[in-house]
Nucleic acid binder design. Structure first.
Lengths: 232, 232
DNA sequence: TTTTCGTTAACTGTTGACAATTTTTTCTGA
DNA sequence: TCAGAAAAAATTGTCAACAGTTAACGAAAA
């Protein structure tokens, strides 16, 4: 964790040090550099980022507000750790949010946006056909981002992002991204069809289902792993 | 704004001063003591609450994380002000969240909970029959809280609460609570029927619609007011 | 009267220090 | 060797002070 904060210097003109620290800590969490359950040492982090503890503490409070960090008085602040049940909860909410995004998108998408959306799906299909996972993941991420950003509801987009971030707080972080490429592709096709048809109800349904089936895929893997480790 | 923080002293054993300040500031916002767009003077607030600026700043960051406050570097922190468009956005998200709550509730409600839910509806009907608004509002609030709390998804409940709080950031705060008592009652009845029938789809639909129609009622009043002030 | 510039005051951003609490280490006795 | 108590270290909570920026005010010029 030797990242300099100097990259953020441009941001410091418009935003405070605390905000830069917040971004950095969030990056470290999503990175995996900060593991769920780990304590955040204020002194250590402060000296690593070249600041005092004030901005660090402010950043931690902000992250606490978004639910990525939990603080216990006189004990410290910890990267939040999500239980299986909590992951299920996050997926439920995420599903509702993404369903809303799908519905809104079907109501207001432009021809231009529809073309870009189609290109995303085609590129993902090509990537999965040649088993190019390195290309698939960022495309998949951008695809989902594009959908929530195009839905025309900034509150929704913001909340959706927060909930996706929360999934990184699960112990099996790596599993969240993986699983079911070809399955996803057929789902993506249906989402596209629903949006292209400008059918809000269908689109809502398709987008909802896409998230819940991602949840099911993850949970089945987790369940299998747990069963395996229990018999050992 | 002469409220002492001493009432929160019991909380200080488990939580930090910053957390107590956060609660207090949030109370002042929901209260109306802090108006949307108003700046938060750190020194003033610190001396009023009998602390230093450190905890104040931490509390502000936490509130920024939940979206109740906006900060501009070197200018200060301001109670967020929601535009009509943003209120519409909040209602859209809230509708999706409440719809999810309705769906989940229909799937898992117990007989006990169903009776309590029914009592809420009956009491609200009685209150509106005798035009007792003082009794109606808290009942209505408790009714909604009970639904999201009984849905068995703490993330959902928390987010729902946050979005309801955000509605207080609209200039026409007073209007958010009011309007359409008898209309609400018929909607409440349908929600109740759907939940009692353990029909997730119907319940989802009914709960969604309840929020969107509340939104429509609010927006029509706002629109009417705006039209009035423009002709003056 | 209005505008512009410079001075002053107020306020935010950040830091280092001190107090209180928790955790770790060390020491003692069985 | 181990359990428990005491001491030491580490860490968090809070505060007060200082630096830098912005806003407010008033005087001088157009």
């Amino acid at each position: 964790m030797t990242t300099s904060i100097s990259e953020e210097l441009g941001i410091l003109r418009t935003s405070s040090l605390a905000a830069a620290v917040e971004r950095e800590v969030e990056r470290l969490i999503l990175n995996g550099s900060f593991a769920p359950g780990e304590r955040i040492n204020e002194n250590k982090l402060a000296s690593e980022l070249g600041t005092s503890r004030g901005p660090i503490r402010e950043a931690i409070r902000a992250l606490e507000g978004t639910g990525l960090v939990v603080s216990i008085r006189n004990r410290g602040s910890f990267i939040r750790r999500l239980s299986v049940q909590e992951v299920r909860e996050v997926y439920e909410v995420r599903s509702a949010l993404f369903g809303l995004a799908g519905k809104l998108l079907a109501e207001r998408i432009t021809e231009d946006q529809l073309q870009r959306l189609t290109r995303f799906v085609v590129e993902m299909e090509e990537a999965s056909k040649r088993r190019d996972f390195e290309a698939y993941y960022p495309l998949n991420l951008a695809f989902h981002e594009f959908i929530v950003d195009s839905a025309g509801n900034t509150m929704l987009a913001q909340q959706y992002r927060t909930f996706v971030k929360k999934l990184h707080l699960f112990r099996a972080r790596s599993l969240v991204q993986g699983g079911g490429l070809t399955v996803s592709n057929t789902e993506h096709r249906e989402m596209l069809s629903a949006v292209a048809a400008r059918d809000p109800v269908w689109s809502h349904e398709a987008h909802c289902r896409h998230v819940t089936s991602a949840r099911d895929r993850l949970l089945s893997v987790v369940k299998a792993e747990d069963a395996l480790s229990n018999t050992n």
